[in-house]
Lab assay of single mutants.
Amino acid sequence: ETGKELVLALYDYQEKSPREVTMKKGDILTLLNSTNKDWWKVEVNDRQGFVPAAYVKKL
């Protein structure tokens, strides 16, 4: 879809709370919100949640 910003997972991340999502290094995720410098909201496999901003980079 146009207008979607994507990020690349630089590291594996295992969710530690229900508000977070698990990702694997190399995953491409849809970026939903990056206003917080530490935690970015992403969508992966129809799930939305937060990942550490340092673990992903914008494509």
Results as ranks from 00 to 15, higher is better:
residue 59 L to F: 09
residue 25 K to Q: 09
residue 56 V to K: 00
residue 48 Q to P: 05
residue 35 T to S: 14
residue 35 T to L: 09
residue 45 N to A: 13
residue 31 L to Q: 00
residue 40 W to R: 01
residue 3 G to M: 14
residue 48 Q to M: 10
residue 1 E to M: 09
residue 10 L to I: 10
residue 30 T to R: 13
residue 17 S to W: 06
residue 4 K to V: 13
residue 27 D to E: 12
residue 34 S to P: 06
residue 16 K to R: 14
residue 28 I to N: 02
residue 2 T to D: 13
residue 43 E to P: 00
residue 58 K to D: 05
residue 54 A to R: 15
residue 49 G to V: 04
residue 58 K to V: 13
residue 34 S to R: 07
residue 2 T to R: 12
residue 41 K to A: 08
residue 12 D to F: 04
residue 10 L to F: 04
residue 59 L to T: 06
residue 8 L to M: 14
residue 53 A to C: 06
residue 6 L to E: 07
residue 37 K to S: 12
residue 52 P to Y: 02
residue 36 N to I: 05
residue 15 E to C: 13
residue 14 Q to D: 14
residue 15 E to F: 05
residue 33 N to D: 15
residue 53 A to P: 06
residue 37 K to R: 11
residue 11 Y to R: 15
residue 27 D to R: 03
residue 36 N to T: 06
residue 43 E to V: 10
residue 45 N to V: 12
residue 12 D to V: 02
residue 4 K to R: 13
residue 9 A to P: 01
residue 7 V to R: 01
residue 38 D to V: 13
residue 27 D to S: 07
residue 49 G to T: 02
residue 22 T to V: 03
residue 21 V to W: 04
residue 35 T to A: 12
residue 11 Y to G: 06
residue 3 G to V: 14
residue 36 N to A: 08
residue 29 L to V: 07
residue 1 E to T: 14
residue 39 W to A: 02
residue 50 F to M: 08
residue 44 V to T: 15
residue 56 V to R: 00
residue 26 G to Y: 05
residue 3 G to W: 12
residue 2 T to A: 14
residue 11 Y to L: 10
residue 30 T to K: 12
residue 6 L to C: 12
residue 23 M to C: 06
residue 56 V to Y: 01
residue 18 P to L: 09
residue 47 R to P: 00
residue 39 W to H: 03
residue 39 W to K: 02
residue 22 T to M: 04
residue 25 K to I: 06
residue 45 N to C: 14
residue 33 N to S: 13
residue 22 T to N: 06
residue 1 E to F: 04
residue 24 K to Q: 10
residue 12 D to M: 03
residue 6 L to W: 12
residue 21 V to F: 11
residue 51 V to W: 00
residue 17 S to F: 06
residue 11 Y to E: 10
residue 26 G to W: 05
residue 58 K to A: 09
residue 5 E to C: 15
residue 18 P to E: 10
residue 42 V to Q: 00
residue 20 E to Y: 05
residue 23 M to D: 00
residue 32 L to C: 07
residue 19 R to D: 12
residue 8 L to R: 09
residue 51 V to T: 02
residue 59 L to D: 03
residue 42 V to P: 00
residue 28 I to T: 06
residue 9 A to C: 13
residue 25 K to P: 03
residue 27 D to N: 06
residue 54 A to N: 13
residue 19 R to A: 12
